[in-house]
Design a protein around this nucleic acid. Structure first.
Lengths: 335, 335
DNA sequence: TTGTAAGCGTTATCAT
DNA sequence: ATGATAACGCTTACAA
C-alpha cells in the first residue's frame, strides 16, 4: 500500500480510503483514478489479515457440521459457502466427526472468526460459555437465545405418517438416533403424534435407536424384521438410515414395498439412485445453508434480523412405499 | 497479552515467548509458571490474526475442489481437514462449482493463506501466475513444477479393462468427461490401452463424453444403448457416471449385469447402496486428502519432502459386472 | 480533499 | 533471563 501511495504521489492512508471503498469519505476523482491506476500497475492486493487485525473482524465464518460424508451436510456447506464467498467471506470448514465441537469452536475463536454456523450438533448441550460473545446461527436447532434457521422437522414426520396411513398401514416402525439433535427429535415426534391422532401407537420395541448412518439403519432394522407381527411401514430419521433399512430388507429377503414400506428424510441424492427409489421427505439443505449464511452476515453487519421463517419440507412419494400388505383390496387398488 | 504481563509482573514480549513455546529461548521456570498461571486466570487466548500479521503466515490452508456433492471430494476434504485441524491449521473450504478457481485462489491469497490443496481442477490450465509464489499441493494432477499426491489412475483403467476382459467381454464402451483433468484422462488411457494390448479397440462412438455426474452418465449412456452391436461392457470415469449409466440401463430395460456390465471408479459410498452393488475401482479419497495436507504442512515447515508415492487403487468386483452375454457357456457357468 | 499520527496484538531483534 | 523497541499492513481519528 505504501508503494501504491508512493507511485500515485499520495499518502498511504489515502490509498486505504480509496481501496476500502469507504462511502463516507470523499476523495477527488482524479486522485482516486491515479491511486487505482497505481494499484493496478503494481498488482496490489489488500492484506485481509492486517485489515482483520485493525478492524477486529476477520471476514471469515466457521461452518461446523457433524459429518461431511452425509450428502445432506455437504449441501448445507455448499449453500453457505456460495453466499459467503459472494460477499467476500471465507468459510472455515470444521467436520466435528470426532465429537470435537468445543475444540473446533475454540480454534475458530482464536482466529477472530466473525461468526459460526452450526448444524445438527445439539448446540444446547455445549458446555456453558462455549458460545459466549460469538455470533452464531444454528441450523435446525431452534433456540431462545441464539439465531437460527430451521426446516419444518415436525411436518416431516407428520407427512411421513400421513403418507403411510394413507396407504393403509397399521403397524409402524421408527428408526432414529439417540442423540439430542432437535431435527431428529422433532421428526420422530411429528411421526409419533400423527400416528397417535390416527389412533395408532408405536410400541417402544418398534422404535429403534442407532447412529444416523447407513450401517446404523441396517443394524437397527434387523431386530425389527424379526418382530411379530413385524411393522409394515417404517419411517427413518434420515435417508442414510432408510437406505440401511432397505439394505437390511434386501438381506432378509423382505420385499420393498410389497412387504415393507420405507420412508426416509432429507432427500439426498443417493435416495433417487436406489432401486426402488426411496420415498422420502425433502429438506432444502442447500437453502438452509444459504439462509444461515445470509442471516449470519446480516448479524455481522449489525442489520436488524427478523426471525427466520421455517422452511417447508415436502413428501417425495417414490418407490419404497406402497399399500399395506394386509390392506383391503380396495385400498390396494387405489394405490 | 499486556494484561497477562501486568498480572505476572513481567514485560509483554516475555509473555509472548512463553506462550509461543518457542524452544530456542530459555525462560526461568518460575517466571514461566507465573505467566502461564496469569494467562489461565485471565482466560487469555492468543490472537492468531496478529500472529499471522507479524509472521507473515496465517496457519490456514485452502482446499479447492470441483464439487462437494461428489462424495469422493467430500472424503478428500475430510481427510485434509483432520490432518490440518490436528496440527492447528484451519481449512478454508472453496467449492469451485462455478468454475471460479481463479477467484477463489485470489481470495485465499488475500488472506495470506499458507498453502493450497487443489483437487481435480486441471491446475495446468490455470492462467499463468495464478499459482505463483504459492505453496500448492495438487491431488491427482502430477506436475513437474508443483508438488502433489496422486492415485494410480492408469491402473484404475487397466484393472477395469482386465476385469471385463476376464469376464469374456469383447465389445466395450467408455463414459468420461471432456475435461483435461489428469485423473480422468489417465483412467481412460489405462482402460483403452489395456484393451488394445488384448487386441480390442474402442470405436470412437463407443467412447462418450459428458459431465462427470449422474445426469451426465445417464445422458451419455442412452445413445450407447442404441448402438448395434451395443457394447456389453462399460467403464466410467467415475462412480457418479456409472450410476447414471446404470439408471439409463434400468430405464431402457437393459438388465445389469446380464446384458451389460458396468464398472465405475472411486468407490464412493452410494456405490455399495445400489442394487446391484456397483463394481468399481476403489480410490483412497480420504487418504489422498490426508497425504496432501501432510505434504503441504511439511512444505510449510520447510522440511524436505520426498516425492509422494502413487497410491494404489483396487478393483471391487461387485454386482454390476458379470460374464459377457455371448461368452462361452463355460465362462458363464464359472461366474 | 489530503496528510499525520496512533494503534490493532503479535513476534523478533537487540541490549541489558 | 528479561525488557525496550521496532516492525507487520492496515484503518481511523484528527489536523491541515
Amino acid at each position: 500500500m505504501r508503494d501504491v501511495a508512493r507511485r500515485a504521489g499520495v499518502s498511504q492512508p489515502l490509498v486505504s480510503l480509496v481501496i476500502a471503498e469507504n462511502p463516507t469519505t470523499r476523495v477527488a476523482d482524479a486522485t482516486r483514478e491515479r491511486i487505482l491506476q497505481a494499484a493496478r500497475e503494481l498488482g496490489y492486493r489488500p492484506n485481509v489479515v492486517a485489515r482483520a487485525l485493525v478492524r477486529g473482524r476477520s471476514f471469515a465464518i466457521g461452518v461446523i457440521i457433524p459429518d461431511l460424508r452425509n450428502p445432506f451436510f455437504a449441501d448445507v456447506v455448499i449453500g453457505a459457502e456460495r453466499v459467503a464467498a459472494d460477499r467476500g467471506y471465507a468459510v472455515l470448514f470444521c467436520d466435528a466427526m470426532e465429537g470435537s465441537v468445543e475444540r473446533h469452536i475454540d480454534a475458530l475463536r482464536t482466529r477472530q472468526i466473525d461468526g459460526i454456523i452450526i448444524d445438527a450438533l445439539g448446540a444446547a448441550s455445549l458446555a456453558d460459555g462455549t458460545l459466549a460473545d460469538l455470533n452464531v446461527v444454528l441450523i435446525d436447532e431452534p433456540s431462545a437465545a441464539l439465531h437460527g434457521v430451521a426446516s419444518d422437522a415436525e411436518a416431516a414426520g407428520r407427512l411421513a405418517a400421513e403418507h403411510l396411513l394413507g396407504l393403509g398401514h397399521r403397524h409402524f416402525g421408527f428408526l432414529g438416533p439417540a442423540s439430542d439433535v432437535w431435527a431428529f427429535r422433532m421428526r420422530e415426534r411429528g411421526f409419533v403424534q400423527a400416528l397417535r391422532r390416527a389412533g395408532f401407537t408405536l410400541a417402544s420395541s418398534d422404535l429403534r435407536r442407532a447412529p444416523p448412518t447407513v450401517e446404523g439403519g441396517r443394524a437397527a432394522m434387523k431386530p425389527l424384521l424379526r418382530r411379530s407381527p413385524a411393522p409394515t411401514a417404517l419411517f427413518c430419521a434420515n435417508d442414510l438410515m432408510a437406505i440401511g433399512a432397505l439394505k437390511a430388507c434386501a438381506d432378509a429377503g423382505v420385499s420393498v414395498p410389497a412387504a415393507m414400506s420405507i420412508v426416509g428424510c432429507d432427500d439426498i441424492e443417493p435416495a433417487r439412485l436406489l432401486t426402488p427409489e426411496l420415498t422420502t421427505v425433502a429438506v432444502p439443505a442447500r437453502e438452509l445453508g444459504a439462509r444461515a449464511a445470509r442471516l449470519l452476515l446480516q448479524l455481522l453487519d449489525g442489520l436488524p434480523v427478523r426471525p427466520a421463517k421455517v422452511l417447508p419440507v415436502q413428501l417425495m412419494a417414490r418407490g419404497t412405499s406402497g399399500p399395506a400388505p394386509d390392506a383391503r383390496p380396495a385400498a390396494a387398488a387405489l394405490a
